[in-house]
Simulated scan of single mutants.
Amino acid sequence: MFGSSKPYGANAYSKISEETGVIAASPHKLIVMLFDGAIVAVGNALQQMQKREIAAKGRSISHAISIIDNGLRASLDKRVGGEIALNLDALYEYMSRQLLLGNLNNEEAKLLEVQNLLRDLKNTWEAIAPETPISQQQAAYQPDPLQPRSTHVFEA
């Protein structure tokens, strides 16, 4: 009766935590999260390939391709990004193709190549992280509740 509720509870908690992270994330952090998701999905596929779990491997690779195509690739602005965006678009297309071929032919090397490319891109993306805006720093400031504060006309 209670045996199946534990995994569900853990999954529900994980889902809520993930959704909260997405809502609170900056656009830059969202890209990092996409990289992380794709890296994990490829890692799962590699493990499933080794265990000969064909269906699970296919789902993991499909998930990675979806993140690359519908997340990373779709977020590119080719008009503003110029040559860099065009090169990234071609690289994302290459990665999706390599994942598909790796899945079809059970080639771990293709999956490892994509995983390494994703890690390199993620590390580069993290290295160019924008500084925290002043408004976020101010939002993080918590005044001392025991100190007198000024009142405003519109406060209740």
Rank of each mutant, 00 (worst) to 15 (best):
N105D: 11
K78W: 01
L104S: 15
P133C: 00
I39Q: 07
I16L: 09
I16E: 04
L146W: 06
E53N: 13
H152M: 11
K29R: 14
I68K: 00
F154G: 13
P145N: 09
L111R: 04
L86W: 06
A140H: 13
T151M: 12
T20K: 09
A129M: 12
Q147M: 11
A55V: 13
K51P: 01
A85R: 04
G71Q: 02
D69R: 12
Q47G: 14
A12P: 00
N106S: 14
Q147R: 07
S96L: 03
K51C: 02
L101S: 05
A25M: 07
K122P: 05
L100T: 11
E131P: 04
V80N: 14
Q147G: 00
A90E: 09
Q115E: 11
S4D: 10
R52Q: 12
H63D: 09
L76E: 07
G58C: 08
P145Y: 05
D36H: 06
F154S: 14
K29C: 00
E113C: 05
V153D: 12
R149E: 15
V22D: 08
S75C: 09
I31P: 05
S135W: 09
E155F: 04
T20L: 14
K57R: 10
G82I: 04
M49C: 10
L76G: 06
V114Y: 01
L76H: 03
G9L: 12
T124F: 08
A139G: 01
F154E: 14
N70S: 11
E108P: 04
V80E: 15
L99Y: 02
Q50C: 03
Q136H: 11
T124M: 09
G43Q: 10
Y94T: 02
H28F: 03
T132Q: 10
S60W: 03
A56R: 14
G37L: 02
P133M: 01
V40M: 13
G82Q: 03
L91I: 08
L91Q: 11
A64S: 12
A85Y: 03
A85P: 01
I23N: 04
I61R: 08
I128G: 10
I54K: 08
Y92H: 00
S66R: 08
S62W: 01
P148Y: 02
A74P: 01
N70H: 10
I54S: 06
P130V: 06
V42K: 12
G9A: 07
K122C: 01
I67P: 05
K78A: 06
F2S: 09
I39H: 04
N44F: 08
